[in-house]
Simulated assay, not measured.
Amino acid sequence: MQAVVYDRYGAPDVLRLEEVPTPSPAAGQVRIRVVATSINLSDWECLRGTPAYARIGGLRAPARHTLGSDIAGVVDAVGEGVTRFRPGDEVYGDNLGLKGGFAEYAIAPESVLAHKPTQLTFAQASTIPQSGAIALQGTQGAAADRRALINGAGGGTGPFAIQLAKRLGAHVTGVDNAGKLDFMRSVGADEVIDYRRDDFTRTAPYDLILDLVAHRSVFAYRRALVRGGRYRCVGGSVPTLLRVLTAGWVVGRSSGRAIDVLPVKEGPAYFEA
């Protein structure tokens, strides 16, 4: 089969198209004929090898030589013990552990896959698993009469988060650059903020903040929350994530707010039709 591979960290020019052996599924695994894959920030980080956590399992060279975690395709073969799928099934999922979507065939654990909704194309389905799961978990707690803010709302996860928070009845503010303001409004944001002009931590306090590009201090996040509010961080710089994991708990707890990193859970339960 053909696959886009790389054996060292770097820019996109380290990627190359090669003929490689077609993998065989082990017990509990499924082989998928890939029809579509999407590119996530995690793919870019694993390509570059930065931030540092992108090198987990492969300090000097990539542990997996084919990128592509979000996949959609047709089951081609199943390993021993697989019960939820059979050849011919249309599936999609976030294969972050094994990746392999930038190839004709990919191996994935049965546990990370779901049946593709018939109303979605393969291309549409491939955009959902990672971003959709983050948005679904990150907007838990949004409700009528509550103010929710999504920082980085014009990217991959943000549009899902805006729509989910609106569906729950929240008043939603989206934050991104000026070129994405109209787009955020088009998917349901009640208010939009250009981060280059305004600091959302100094606007009206919010009941829920989902931060996809964190880089401020925990004290700024505390200021942006109402008492009893919750701040959830998913993406950002390593120093910021570490501060949120450590000082965020202390600062939040002492002020009656919750400031933490969202522990994203994977699996088909989060995007099964």
Rank of each mutant, 00 (worst) to 15 (best):
V4K: 04
V5Y: 03
R8Q: 14
Y9R: 05
A11I: 14
P12Y: 10
P12M: 10
L15G: 06
P21C: 12
T22W: 01
P23E: 07
S24G: 13
P25R: 03
R31E: 05
V35C: 14
N40L: 03
L41Q: 10
D43S: 09
E45C: 04
G49K: 00
R55L: 08
R55A: 04
G57C: 01
G58S: 08
L59Q: 10
A61S: 13
A61L: 13
A61D: 09
A63F: 11
A63C: 05
H65G: 09
S69Q: 10
R86S: 11
P87K: 01
G88R: 05
G93I: 02
N95A: 05
L98V: 12
G100Y: 04
G101L: 00
E104W: 00
A106H: 03
I107T: 03
A108K: 05
P109R: 01
L120W: 15
F122W: 14
A123K: 14
S126Q: 04
P129A: 03
G141V: 09
A144P: 01
D145E: 15
I150H: 06
N151L: 14
G152T: 02
G158P: 01
P159L: 01
Q163R: 12
L164K: 13
L164T: 11
K166M: 08
L168R: 15
A170D: 11
G174L: 05
D176P: 00
F183E: 03
S186G: 05
S186T: 03
D190K: 07
V192H: 04
Y195V: 01
D198F: 11
D199V: 03
D199I: 05
F200W: 09
T203Q: 11
A204K: 10
P205K: 10
D207P: 10
D207F: 06
D211P: 04
V213N: 12
A214F: 03
Y221L: 05
R223L: 15
R223F: 06
R223C: 08
L225S: 04
G228S: 09
G228P: 02
G228L: 07
G229Q: 08
Y231M: 13
Y231A: 11
V234A: 02
G236H: 06
T240E: 12
L245Q: 15
G248Q: 01
G248T: 02
V250I: 15
G252K: 07
G252V: 06
A258C: 15
V261K: 10
V264T: 04
V264P: 02
G267C: 06
F271S: 00
